Amino acid sequence: MEVQILQLLDGAKEAKGLTVIIDVFRAFSTACYALAEGAAKIIPVGNIENAYQLKEQHPDYILMGERNEMKPHGFDFGNSPSQLIGSELKGKTLVHTTSSGTQGIVAAGHVPEIITGSFVNAGAIISYIKNRKPEMVSLVCMGYACEFPTDEDTLCAEYIRNELKGLSNNFPQMVEIIRKGSGERFFEPEKQEWAPKEDFDLCLDLNRFDFVLRAEKEGEFSFLRKIDVAGGILR
């Protein structure tokens, strides 16, 4: 099994094989929490206008996401897992658009299979890939607004690669690097409205979930389906 780590939108466009689009802070951590709260499915879109269009066509859909890390006008939720816990999402369809992660899913649409990447379900991702036995795995780190790499996404890719290759990981050390680097904003008082400190711990709650999120095509858009490590569909 060949494993490559790629960065940003160019990396998503160059990806080959089973592709993991990684966005730890916070798109694909948030997506896991949303589906764990009972959401039926998530439609990831790159263009925010597509999100508004889907809402207009389907008023019962819930809009979730961010631009410049903040909740866009008219959205039901931002891109924050702490906002979702305890919400009434059972059976709901969510439309999710972010500056990084969902952009990567759209850009990697040419590959045979896309799953999302985060620490909260890293163990399930690793088991899923081992079960699939692909010749090539692309780990794509989406970074901050697809503009520059971030500690959390790169370290998540390294964590997954190391586990696939039988190498050791020091997760507590990774957390400290992230806390002092790109995760520092979650502890700044003036940013608590849109980057609450609770999100830092929720996004780095290693292996909290035992499922994988796989992107599957449905008409014009894809949707994220919750599956187990053997590839079985979970309800």
Rank of each mutant, 00 (worst) to 15 (best):
D199G: 04
K180G: 14
L204A: 04
E176D: 14
D205R: 05
L202G: 01
R179S: 07
F186R: 01
P196H: 03
P196R: 00
D210A: 09
K180V: 15
E184C: 10
W194V: 04
V175M: 15
W194G: 05
E193K: 13
N207F: 04
D199Q: 04
E188F: 06
L202S: 03
N207E: 13
P196M: 03
G183M: 05
Q173W: 13
L202D: 03
P189V: 08
N207C: 09
K191P: 03
E190V: 12
F209H: 01
C203S: 07
G181D: 06
L204I: 06
K191F: 10
N207D: 14
K191N: 13
E193S: 14
R179N: 08
D201Q: 14
I177F: 08
S182P: 02
K191D: 06
S182H: 09
N207T: 04
R185S: 05
K180C: 15
P189G: 07
V175K: 14
D205K: 09
I178D: 10
N207H: 09
G183K: 03
D205H: 08
P189E: 04
D210R: 01
K180H: 15
D210F: 01
N207P: 01
E184P: 00
P196I: 02
I177S: 08
S182K: 01
L206F: 10
R179P: 05
F209A: 03
K197Q: 15
V212P: 00
K197V: 08
K197F: 11
K180S: 15
E190T: 10
G181Y: 09
F200I: 08
E188A: 12
C203Y: 00
R208F: 06
A195Q: 03
V212N: 00
F187Y: 10
G183I: 03
L206Q: 11
R179H: 11
F200E: 06
Q192N: 07
D210Y: 00
G183N: 06
A195R: 00
S182D: 15
E176V: 12
F187D: 08
E188M: 12
Q173G: 14
M174E: 02
E184F: 11
F211W: 02
E190G: 07
D201I: 14
D201R: 13
M174T: 06
I178T: 10
K180P: 13
S182L: 04
L202T: 01
E198S: 12
R185M: 10
K191C: 06
P189N: 04
D199R: 01
F209W: 01
E190R: 14
R185L: 06
C203I: 02
R208V: 07
I177C: 11
P196D: 02
P196E: 01
R208W: 06
F186V: 06
E193C: 08
V175F: 12
F187Q: 05
R179Y: 11
F211C: 04
P189K: 06
R185N: 09
R185I: 10
I177D: 10
K191H: 12
F187S: 09
I177R: 11
E190M: 12
R185V: 04
E198L: 11
